[in-house]
Every structure is written in structure tokens, then in C-alpha cells.
Computed example of a mutant assay.
Amino acid sequence: MMRRVLLALAGALLLVLIAMAVAPQVFTTADPLVADVSARLQPPSAEHLFGTDQSGRDVFARVVHGARASLGVGVSAVLIALLAGTVLGWLIGSAPRPVDAVVIRVVDLALAVPEFLVALVVVALLGPGAGNVAIAVTLAVIPIYIRYARGHTRAIAAEEHVEAARMLGLSTVTVSLRHVLPAVARRLTVLATIGIGSTILAVSGLGFLGLGAGEPAPEWGLMLAGGRNVLARAWWVTLFPGLAITLTVVCASLIGRALRDLVEGERVR
């Protein structure tokens, strides 16, 4: 019962965050870029729900509008990595064993390097910016999806219904396209739901380091970086974007793990 309540709460919060990214004007009419020095570092109040930052900008408006940058880049990176990783992993898993053995070792080498470090190196090579962060995070997580897709391809290809399709006279390519690839895609979609949280965390981390969107763009990681110098006297500047990141990561992870358990339960039955 408690787990269902937590999942329902996580789903509701995630929907609110998605709605913020899609239609921020529904939640606030304040301009996140307008600065008012006379109203700088004001604590949360009826006029400014989350207070104001060191430039007098409304923190609530910036958190709401920041959802588009943080969620947009994170989700886009996961979707592209999911598509590329599924296809590449399926091709590797369907290849002859010598080819599979060589390629998968290369993938394993890539996985030996932490995702965030890979993204950091890519951004250092391409230069800072929201677009380059999206590319960097995508390249960093693709090997994960390749590894999982390859493993699932091998496992599904050995299942009874796939063997039965071959015995009916279907070609290897037809069986793989009709039975193996769709099953691999379904299983990796669940993994991608869990991965959204870590990807958004990476995007925010790069933004915190000043490698993502630049000022005055509303982006959660950048907002955290901007508020660290006034943390002692204006805690709200960092608290609320930090909460937004935490809630997004936790909610996406909870829902992703619930979907994984559901899929694995159906497979067992």
C-alpha cells in the first residue's frame, strides 16, 4: 500500500515537472530573466514564493522555466541514446560471435570510464553550451544501452518462441526484426526511464561547473552555482533548484524501477 502511494506521488510530481517544462507560463507570469537590484536576496514571500536571487530575479520563475532546459536536455539525450544503443546493441548481438566478442570488448572499455567524466571530456573538446552538453551526455550513456541491448538480444534469440519462429521457416533476419528487436526495445525503454534521473543529474552537474547554459539562462545546475556564494544568508537561492533536481531524479528512478519490476514479473509468469 505504501509503495503504491509513493509511486502515485512520484508520478504526480513528475507530471507537474513535465508540465512546467512544456508550459511554464501556466505556473508563473514572472519573467525569469528580469533583474531588480532593489529586490535582491529577498526571502520567500507571497510576492516571491521562492524568494529572489542576488540579481533580484524571481527564483520560482527561474525554477519553473529551468525545467525546460534541464528536463529537455536530459530526456532528449536519453531518447537519442536509447535509439542508437538499441540498434547498435541489436546489431552486435546478432553478429557472428567473433565480431560480437571484439566489439563488445571495445564497449566494455568505454564503460570502464565514468559517464560524467566522459561527458566532461566531450564538453571540454566541443566547448560549453546547452547543445554541446546534450551531445556529451548522449555519447556518455550510449555504451550502457549498447551493452544491455546486446545482452538482451542474445538472451531473447535463445527463447522458445524465437526458436519456434525459425522452425516455421522464417529467415534469421525476419525473426530478428519481428521478434527480437521489438522485445529488446521494450526492455531498454524501462532502463531508459531509470536513466532519465542520472542523465538530468549529469546535465545539472555540468551546468553547475559552468559548462552548460550561460547566464542569465534559467537552468537548475547554473542556479545552484550562482547561489553557492550567498548560501549563508540566502539559502533559498540554492535550496529550491536543488529540490527540483532531487525530486526529478527520485521520481524518475522510482517509476523506472516499478516498471522494471512489472516487466520482470510478466516475464516470470
Rank of each mutant, 00 (worst) to 15 (best):
L139Q: 02
L125F: 14
R3D: 04
S55C: 03
Q54S: 10
V103L: 15
R154V: 13
V250L: 14
H152E: 14
R68Q: 14
E266C: 06
L243R: 07
H152K: 11
S76K: 03
I194K: 03
G207V: 01
L71Y: 01
I80K: 11
P216V: 12
A183I: 00
S204F: 04
M1C: 07
V59H: 03
V122F: 06
H152N: 12
L224K: 00
R40H: 07
A112L: 03
L41E: 09
A158C: 05
A202P: 01
S198D: 03
S45Y: 13
M20I: 10
R62T: 11
P96M: 00
A8Q: 11
T138G: 00
A30C: 00
P128S: 11
L41N: 13
I255R: 02
N132I: 02
I146M: 05
L181N: 01
I144A: 02
A258R: 07
A234C: 06
D108A: 03
A234H: 01
V34R: 13
P216F: 11
S38F: 13
A185T: 04
L209E: 08
T174I: 02
A101N: 07
T153G: 09
A61V: 00
P182K: 01
L33F: 08
V230T: 14
P128K: 04
I245S: 05
R257T: 09
G72S: 11
G227C: 04
T52H: 05
L117T: 15
V26Q: 11
V63K: 01
L259F: 08
L91M: 14
A155P: 02
H152D: 12
V121T: 12
V190L: 10
